[in-house]
Design a protein around this nucleic acid. Structure first.
Lengths: 233, 233
DNA sequence: AAGTGTGAAGGCCTTCACAGCA
DNA sequence: TGCTGTGAAGGCCTTCACACTT
C-alpha cells in the first residue's frame, strides 16, 4: 500500500519524536552510501532500539513502508524532514553573547540544521555595537522591536540563569514561535511556544551520578533523551 | 524521624535522577536566601512537578524529611550532593579541540560542577603542542597512556561524528569511568562506564518539530529531560 | 517468504490517597 | 494540624504477536 493519510489525531510520545530525528540521520547516511531501501530491523539495530519501536514510531506519522520490502530511503527522508520541519530554514535570534553565546554563534551545527542567526543581543554595553561575523550585537532593550521587525521565529537564550526568565518572556512577547534555552534554570513558557532546553550543568551532574552509582546501571540508557532507562542502586 | 538507611535496592527512574539535580539547585538558591526549611510542595511548585513526585524522588534515596515540618535545607543539600557524586571533584580529558571543544574548554560550567580538565587531545598536528590555559594539546595517539598515567576519570568527546566511536573505545580501554559525548551520533559504551550524551543537532530538530506541530503540544514538556511530555498532532 | 502496520499485553513511571509521625 | 513516606491505582510507552500486503 502506498501513501495514505496520516493519523493526524493520535498522541505522540516525545521520545518517539526524538528517535525520528535519529532515524533521519541514519537514513541520510544510508543514502550517501548508495542504499535505496532499509527496514525497521536495520534501522533499529543501528540505533539501539527494537524493530517494533521503529515501526511504531513511524506509524505515528503515517504509513511509509512496503510490506515485504521495507522503507524506500528516498521517499522516507523527505517525509521525515517535513514532519520535523527541517525541510525549511528558521530565522533565529541569539540572546547573550558571553562565553556560551559566542560559542553557539560560531558553532556550525546551527547552520547545518537550517538555523540562521539574524540578530544578536547582549545587555553589556561593552559588547553592544561590536561585530560578530556579518551581524552587530544589539542592546537587549531593543530586542522586542528588532525581533518583530525582522520576523524572527526562534530565540536562543544564552544568558545567566537569573536573567533567563525575563529574556524568555520578552521573546514570547516579541512573537517568537520557539525558544532554545541554554541557561541553567527551569523556565516557564506559554503552551503555544515551542521550547527545548539543554542544561549542561544538570547533564554533568547526571554523569557524575552514573559513575557514582557504579554497578548501578540497568538497561542501556546511553543517550538520555532516547530511552527511559533506569538506574538501580 | 531522622537519618535511616537508604533502600539501596530499588530501581531508580532516570527522570527521577535528573529531577534530583534540579532540587539541589533550588535548595542551594533557598539556602542563599537564608531559608532553613522547605517542603515537597514548595520544591514542586518551583520546578513544575507535583509534590508527590518530589517526595517519591527523594524517597528513592532515603528518608530525609520530617513529617509536619518538611526538609531541612542544610541537611538535604549535602545528602543530595553525595547521591549525585558532586561532593567531590572529577578529573577529565577533553578530546577534540575544534570549535566545540574549545568552547567547552572555556565554558565555566565544568569547573563550577567540579569537573577539572587535566588533558586535551586532538588529531590535528597543527593543534598538537599549542597551549590552552595551563594545558598543552596532545596527540590523540598518546591519549591512552596519558589518561592512564594521570588517572583521569572522565572523557569528554567533542570530535566529528565519524571519529566518535573510536575515541569512545579508546577512552574505555584507557580506563575512564564515564564519558560525556557531544558528537552528533549514537555511541555504544560498556555497561560499567557512565555515559551521557548531548546531541545539539537532535535538540535543534526537536525545537523545529515542536514549532511545526503547532497547537500540537500537550502537557508542559518544557525541559525535555524532566518529564515524559507528549505531543499531539 | 519477507516485512509492515497495529491491536493487545506488559512494564514502568507518575499520581493518588492516606497512615503515621512531629 | 501539617507534612512526609509509601502502597495502590492510573496512565503512558514499549514490546509482543500476528494479520495482511507485496
Amino acid at each position: 500500500m502506498g501513501r495514505r493519510e496520516r493519523p493526524l489525531s493520535s498522541v505522540i510520545p516525545r521520545a518517539a519524536a526524538t528517535r525520528i530525528s535519529l532515524y533521519l540521520r541514519y537514513l541520510e547516511k544510508l543514502e550517501s552510501l548508495g542504499e535505496t531501501t532499509t527496514s525497521s530491523q536495520q534501522l533499529g539495530a543501528a540505533l539501539g532500539v527494537t524493530a517494533a519501536q521503529v515501526r511504531k514510531d513511524l506509524g505515528y506519522f503515517g504509513q511509509f513502508g512496503f510490506p515485504g520490502v521495507g522503507y524506500k530511503i528516498s521517499h522516507l527522508i523527505p517525509e521525515i524532514r517535513k514532519i520535523l520541519g527541517t525541510d525549511r530554514s528558521w530565522s533565529a535570534a541569539l540572546v547573550g553573547m558571553g562565553n556560551l553565546g559566542s560559542a553557539l554563534f560560531q558553532y556550525r551545527g546551527f547552520q547545518e540544521q537550517g538555523f540562521c542567526f539574524r540578530a544578536l543581543f547582549d545587555r553589556d554595553a561593552r559588547l553592544v555595537g561590536s561585530r560578530m561575523g556579518d551581524l552587530t550585537v544589539e542592546d537587549v532593550a531593543d530586542m522586542p522591536q528588532a525581533i518583530a521587525r525582522q520576523s524572527i521565529e526562534l530565540g536562543v537564550i544564552a544568558v545567566p540563569a537569573d536573567a533567563a526568565q525575563q529574556v524568555a518572556d520578552r521573546l514570547v512577547e516579541a512573537g517568537v514561535r520557539g525558544i532554545f534555552n541554554f541557561a541553567p534554570t527551569v523556565l516557564t513558557v506559554p503552551e503555544e511556544v515551542g521550547f527545548v532546553s539543554v542544561d549542561l550543568a544538570i547533564q554533568l551532574e547526571q554523569l557524575s551520578f552514573e559513575v557514582t552509582q557504579l554497578g548501578g546501571l540497568r538497561g542501556r540508557p546511553g543517550r538520555t533523551d532516547v530511552t527511559n532507562g533506569k538506574l538501580t542502586s
